[in-house]
Nucleic acid binder design. Structure first.
Lengths: 213, 213
DNA sequence: CGGATGCTTGAAGCTGCTCAAGTGAAGTGG
DNA sequence: CCACTTCACTTGAGCAGCTTCAAGCATCCG
C-alpha cells in the first residue's frame, strides 16, 4: 500500500491532525465508529483481531506511506484492532472530507478507490502461498520491499514486529517460523540476527516465494 | 455481498446491458481491461486464477444480487478469471458511469465504496478458520445463507459448484473435503446427496464454524 | 544477580496430502 | 434398452509437514 508521493501530497491537503502515538497504544479498536482513514508517516502498526478461543489473528502490518482503516468502510465500525508496534506519526484523514472532496474532484474519488483496492489486495498476498516455507519467503520479500521504501538498506532490514506476530500473520506457529528461518539461513538464503534480516540470495528466495523448489 | 434491493434499483439505473451467459463462458479473464462492475441477477460465477504450477486458486463464488469485478479497480486490469458455473444473467455497470454519477450524487459514491468493502471482506471469511473442518463449516453456512436469499428452502440447497471448486476455495484437497462432508454427515450435522445439502443441526454446525468443538 | 521475555531447538503426535483404487450416476452408442 | 464409457465423488493406506508440549538459551531490565 505504499502510495505515490504525489498522491500523498494530495491527501495531505485533507489532513486535520497529525497524531504522534507511542508503541503499545491502540489507534482504534474493534467496534469503534468509522471516522477516518489513517496514513502512516513513521513507525509501524499491526492490525489484528481475536478468534473465538482468544488467539490473535494478525491481518497485516502497516509502515510508512501505507494506509489503514478501510476495514470499517462497510459496517461503519472497525472490524479489527490497530496496535502501535513502533512509535508512530499518523495522518488522520476524516472520511467526511474524502466524501466531500471526492464529490468536487472526482479524480480524487477514484484515487481513493484505487488505494482501497490496493490495500485489500495486499491481504491476499500471504494467503496465496501453499506451504509454510513459501509463505515465509513471500512475507520476507514483501516486508523487505516495503521497508526499503522508508529508507532501509538495499538488502538489510529490521523487522518491526515479533516472531509471534509474523507467525500469526502467516497462519503458522512461532516454532515453525523459527525453524524455517533457521533453515533458510542454513541453505544460505538469508542471515538472521534476532530481528535483523539480511537477504543473501534474493534470486533463490524469490524462486521459493513463487513455489518453485 | 448481497445488496439491498433499494441499492440495487439505484445501481440498475446505471446499467447499460443485461447479458445472458451460458455456463462454461468467461465473463472476463486475467489481464482484461477494467471497464465495468458486474451484478449477478441469476446463476453462479466462479472467480479464480492459476498458481505457478498451474493449480486453480478459487477466490470466490458469486450468486444472485452479488457484485464482482472490484479486483480490477487498482491495477486497471483484472487479476482473476470469472467463469460461469450456471447460466447467468448479468448486469454490466460501466465504471465510467459510477465515477460520473458518483460525482453528482455523492451518497452513491460512498455506497459503491461500501459495496466494495463488503465484497473484499468476504474474501477473508474462509481464510480465517484454522482447521479444515472449521473452514468447511464456515463455507457451508455462508453459502447456505447466500443461496437462501435467492429463493432456496430454509435449510436445504444445491451447491452450484463442484467439490473440486469448493476444495480449491478452502485451500484443502478434494479428498479431504469429501472425508469431512462424510464426517459431518455421520455425526448428524448435515445430509449430503451429491450436490444437494441439508443442514440438519444448524446450532452445532455454527459452533464448529466458530472454532468451538 | 534474578527474573522476564522472546527466540530456538527437540521429540512425539496429528492433520491433511498423495497416490491409488473403488463406486455410482449420467450420458453414449449400438 | 442395455453394455460401455466417463465423470464426479468417495474411500483407503501410507507419508510428510506442521503442531504441540517441553526444555534450553540469550538478551534485556529491574
Amino acid at each position: 500500500m505504499a502510495i505515490e508521493p504525489s498522491e500523498l501530497e494530495r491527501i495531505q491537503s485533507m489532513v486535520r491532525h497529525v497524531q504522534s502515538l507511542p508503541s503499545g497504544d491502540h489507534l482504534f479498536r474493534i467496534g469503534d465508529q468509522f471516522t477516518a482513514i489513517y496514513a502512516v508517516r513513521a513507525g509501524c502498526i499491526k492490525s489484528y483481531s481475536l478468534d473465538a478461543v482468544g488467539h490473535e489473528l494478525v491481518h497485516g502490518f502497516h509502515v510508512r506511506n501505507e494506509l489503514l482503516g478501510f476495514d470499517a468502510v462497510y459496517p461503519d465500525r472497525h472490524r479489527c484492532n490497530a496496535l502501535i508496534l513502533e512509535t508512530c506519526s499518523v495522518c488522520v484523514i476524516p472520511y467526511r472530507d474524502i466524501a466531500r472532496l471526492g464529490a468536487e474532484f472526482h479524480s480524487l474519488q477514484s484515487q481513493v478507490m484505487r488505494l482501497m483496492s490496493r490495500e485489500f489486495s495486499r491481504h491476499l498476498i500471504c494467503a496465496e502461498g501453499a506451504g509454510a516455507t513459501q509463505r515465509t519467503a513471500i512475507f520476507l520479500l514483501d516486508i523487505q520491499s516495503r521497508l526499503r521504501q522508508q529508507g532501509a538498506a538495499k538488502d538489510e532490514f529490521r523487522l518491526p514486529m515479533s516472531r509471534e506476530d509474523v507467525s500469526n500473520y502467516l497462519g503458522i506457529t512461532a516454532e515453525t517460523l523459527s525453524r524455517l528461518m533457521t533453515k533458510l539461513q542454513k541453505i544460505g538464503l538469508i542471515d538472521v540476527d534476532r530481528r535483523n534480516i539480511r537477504v543473501a540470495d534474493c534470486i533463490r528466495l524469490e524462486r521459493i516465494a513463487q513455489g518453485i523448489r
